[in-house]
């Protein structure tokens, strides 16, 4: 059964069971998001996709669309909140874009541009996180993890391997590798795992490939994230 709701005044059709973000992206309307991925069950943790439904804040990746809903997304108020969340993500990790291989393909960076973030605003935490270079094909640079859990979901639900997990609570939450040694080399992880393809930032990287595609010719260099139909393509 097909119905409609409005998003920033635009009429969006949807079918039963679709979330707001699913219906919006099917209609070609962008809502910022980081932990949402069309192929996975929503996680609802990053809150970047927050919209106002009939005046109340809610995550559009978990909220099912309902007929006649009035949804606001691209408003100054909501984008200011999204900007603050993004700034917090930048200061919580070590995001050194100029030498990051993911620069230009990074969803966090592209989202920051979309939201007009000019500076990190908050004080940097400068956490001390070592990289895991133990695996012959893949490097894990935990400095950039935004805890979206996509790799956790991909490894568990698609690869059937359960290589990654989130451990700790609140500000202490961190990504772990499920091996006794804690090292990626001691898991059955391989480069063609789905989990190797989903990271929206520059944590899970193919080794020995650096800047083969020039900066300026990358996905979000060509078009802003709001105009990139599939934000997950090319990861």
């Amino acid at each position: 059964m097909s119905h409609t709701f409005t998003l920033d005044g635009k009429v969006i059709p949807f079918v039963d069971g679709q979330t707001i973000i699913q219906a919006a992206s099917a209609a070609g309307v962008f809502i910022p998001h980081l932990c949402y991925h069309p192929e996975f069950k929503p996680h609802g943790s990053c809150k970047l996709c927050t919209v106002k439904v009939n005046g109340r804040h809610t995550a559009s990746c978990t909220m099912r669309a309902a007929p006649g809903m009035v949804v606001e997304s691209e408003t100054e108020e909501i984008n200011a909140e999204r900007r603050a969340l993004t700034q917090m993500l930048f200061v919580e990790g070590n995001h050194f874009c100029p030498s990051c291989e993911k620069s230009g393909n990074c969803q966090l960076q592209a989202t920051a541009y979309h939201l007009g973030m000019m500076s990190p605003h908050y004080d940097h935490f400068f956490p001390n996180r070592a990289v895991d270079a133990s695996h012959p094909e893949v490097l894990l640079d935990f400095n950039r993890c935004i805890l979206c859990s996509l790799c956790v979901r991909a490894s568990r639900d698609v690869d059937g391997k359960n290589v990654f997990g989130l451990s700790g609570r609140g500000i202490k939450t961190h990504l772990i590798v499920n091996a006794k040694s804690g090292q990626l080399a001691d898991t059955d992880f391989t480069l063609d795992d789905k989990a190797a393809q989903v990271c929206p930032v520059g944590v899970i990287l193919k080794k020995r490939r650096g800047f083969a595609v020039p900066i300026g010719e990358r996905k979000f260099d060509k078009a802003p994230i709001s105009e990139t139909a599939d934000t997950t393509e090319g990861r």
Partner: peptide, 13 residues
């Protein structure tokens, strides 16, 4: 402790 392929870009700083 950084991967070597980042170095040519990083050293420009």
């Amino acid at each position: 402790g950084r991967p070597y392929w980042e170095v040519p870009v990083m050293v420009q700083r």
